[in-house]
Design a protein around this nucleic acid. Sequence first.
DNA 1: CTGAAAGCGCTAACAG
DNA 2: CTGTTAGCGCTTTCAG
Lengths: 361, 361
Amino acid sequence: MDQPPRPPTIDDVAKAAGVASSTVSRAFSRPGRVSFETSERIHRVAAELGYRTTSLARALPGGTTSMIALAISDITNPFYYEIIRGAQSAASEAGYTILLADTQESGTHERATLDRAVATVDGIVLATTRMSDSAIRMTAKQRPVIVLNRAVSDVPCVITDNPRGVRRAVEHLAELGHQRLTYLAGPEASWADGMRWRSLRETAMELELHVRRLGPFPPTVAGGARAAAEFAAHPTSAVVAYNDLVAIGAIRALTAMGARIPRDVSVIGFDNIFTAELVTPPLTTVAAPLAAMGRTAVGNLLAIVRGARPRAQAPVTLPCRLIVRRSTAHRRRYRTSPAWATTSVSGSADSAGRSTDAGSR
Amino acid sequence: MDQPPRPPTIDDVAKAAGVASSTVSRAFSRPGRVSFETSERIHRVAAELGYRTTSLARALPGGTTSMIALAISDITNPFYYEIIRGAQSAASEAGYTILLADTQESGTHERATLDRAVATVDGIVLATTRMSDSAIRMTAKQRPVIVLNRAVSDVPCVITDNPRGVRRAVEHLAELGHQRLTYLAGPEASWADGMRWRSLRETAMELELHVRRLGPFPPTVAGGARAAAEFAAHPTSAVVAYNDLVAIGAIRALTAMGARIPRDVSVIGFDNIFTAELVTPPLTTVAAPLAAMGRTAVGNLLAIVRGARPRAQAPVTLPCRLIVRRSTAHRRRYRTSPAWATTSVSGSADSAGRSTDAGSR
DNA sequence: CTGAAAGCGCTAACAG
DNA sequence: CTGTTAGCGCTTTCAG
């Protein structure tokens, strides 16, 4: 009839070592404040008993848990892999644990998840949130928050330099002789999408290219396929997709329709996810420093958690770079509309217009 | 001079509502045990004050946190995406939160991570652990544990039917006329790897095929590339890779060497990760029910957490199925070794052989 | 340097 | 149904 094998408490150790529990506590947290001898003995006894500090109880008085939440919109999106990895390593280096919250591309679901997490964690990084700015600020009032991939005033943010990335992409396309671009848009709630589209328009204007927007589409391969279907009705020689997944989906669908990439249409994606270099053709893309983003976000968050004054002013901006692979190529001039396009009835007229245009350079 | 805006406690609510704190507690946890009127008032007051139960403190007495840990070997591996997703949804449906622990393919790192988590969570899912059986049983003694992708006696497990999957793969290859297979092995610490290799050998023997093993290799695209380099020295017409990543890496490397897949060598992977159908050629693979695995693991874990007797006997086995895509094809008969193989000196003679061969079909 | 005592926010066990 | 009284395991004053 042995007593239930509940884990030893600090009091058990204290008793066994013949000291007060407060001393044991000190021995574990403030190594200097206890005599070497005593400390030694306590640690020995503790080890024998198999004592382990209970992070939970420890958290109670101060209210700090050494956990931070990482909220992402869809764990199925490869975009997050490296981000999570970076966040994870930064967190664990600092002795923090990551609570993963998949918010499934839904603002309401996200709020609910966060509501639960908010009480448990010391801080939150909102990667690609779909919440409104005000909802974000609301949350930020309760806990330290860092927003990744989006700029929200009054809340510290980490973003990538979308305008520059877009510019690189457009310049690249322009150099290849493309004059009309189509943007395959991502989710409406996406800040990055707005950013990219705006930059795209501005840059295109500057470089005197024509640009059109299709969408919104889900930021997935399936979304890309849908985008391709719309695109095919009025194709252009170049496409900029909201992200790599959409780009890949579009390429697949286009290829299935008989188009050849990049010969018939050049495609550029964003993010440089793992899969981007594995597909055929390997994807030209605006690469984001994924791991660094996760790492930076967590780093800054922890700084705030530890009492640094959040510099909410200018978002931290990480550079991105264009990686040219094989999904982009010189524009070919068509006399007539491409064979693969779905230009049904009115399409042909249209395409005639376009081909004229193409020749009139 | 307002007091520090610390979140309202249960006592604040109690005072404001003019009841005892225990009543408030009851109003929140045991809805029936409090008069409708009182409950009503309490909830109203609580809402006004912005009161939220502190899961942490709540956890203290009973010691249960409504969190479960999901330990995975490498978050960068797409294999986990759907598993995490499945686990996440099962957990959140049950009101549990997931603590993600990336153990970075290292048994020791894994133990350390777990040691920290073990005190915080109500249960643990070990997906693809690299720990020893005894270490696992050790952990299982402290907390409810469910092992995913591995069978460990005395610990409840969820696995996929590797033998059957392997059999399907080998039969498929045999039907295509292949007689010699190469297995590209995964990490030595991987249970699945051992399982697959053993099944492969047995099935091959039964079907009178010849099979050889190369490796171990890291379970990544890079690992696959390395595997390909070794493989090229003595190629066979068919390859079974430890997982899709290795398969993809091998295909890429082989292609770079000039081999054509599946014409020159047929390749089969395992898992059916997201990327498998996106690469060229789309990968033939033994698909695991990823989401179901995550879901089942969490479901069973929670059952145990809630007091079910763990049925540690037979592991729960989930079916898998062969998905035939384009990376496998009929074997072509070589007279001599193929041109692309790294058989250096004799190499040139080979290519002649191969072209001859091509015509001799 | 060490001990005693007072909580952290909440729940459980008793009495009313 | 509701209030009172103990703690949960640890940290933190405040005195020695």
